[in-house]
Design a protein around this nucleic acid. Structure first.
Length: 183
DNA sequence: GTCCGGATCTTT
DNA sequence: AAGATCCGGACA
């Protein structure tokens, strides 16, 4: 993806990542999958976003240039992979929640933690470019499935922001992690 | 320094 | 329905 792809609102980028291809290269070879589910997390105003806690610490990378990976540990044991993306001067990242396996994927990729485990992604990749040797994002065919939009998963604590429709998925795709109805 | 709560998944 | 298990942020 060209760098300008990431310099738009986080919502737009999350939507447009549906159908894109994520490529992961390791010493063991190449894996690839098609993104079928993603969530947008905004800047300090978004109470569900790590960027709302503070601009320092692990979320600092969300304030930096787009097109890089934000990988963090959740619940003490699971990794989650995000794509930093936001308008210039703002902050935000897109959580990749599910892939449709294409090449070399030998484990389930429905769910953010499973996706990371299947692709061998952990915090050592935090800050890596999506145009680099380990991770790459490239455009895919325009999805045949309609795009569905709904509230994000697991953010009930975030008040009004919990309702906000920032989750995007490909309707009917079997690899989507959580069923939901589009708004 | 302590304390607490998670953008989850697996097992019971 | 609960447990695993660790980090960042909030307080003192």
């Amino acid at each position: 993806m060209p760098s300008a792809f990431y310099d738009r609102t986080t919502d737009e980028v999350a939507r447009d990542l549906l159908g894109a291809i994520l490529i992961r290269r390791t010493a063991d070879g190449l894996m690839a999958g098609r993104i079928v589910e993603a969530e947008a997390y905004g800047g300090p105003e978004d109470l569900a976003s790590h960027a709302a806690r503070s601009a320092t610490g692990r979320a600092r990378i969300m304030f930096g240039p787009g097109g890089r990976a934000y990988v963090y540990l959740i619940y003490g044991l699971h990794n989650c992979l995000n794509v930093v993306a936001h308008r210039p001067g703002e902050a935000g990242a897109v959580l990749l929640r599910a892939l449709e396996p294409l090449v070399g994927v030998g484990a389930p990729t429905n769910g953010p933690a499973r996706l990371c485990r299947a692709l061998g992604i952990d915090r050592s990749l935090n800050g890596a470019s999506f145009g680099g040797p380990a991770l790459q994002l490239v455009a895919g065919p325009v999805p045949a499935e309609p795009i569905a939009i709904g509230p994000r998963i697991g953010v009930a604590y975030a008040g009004a922001w919990a309702e906000r429709p920032c989750r995007f998925w490909l309707e009917g795709n079997r690899y989507v992690s959580v069923k939901g109805k589009s708004v």
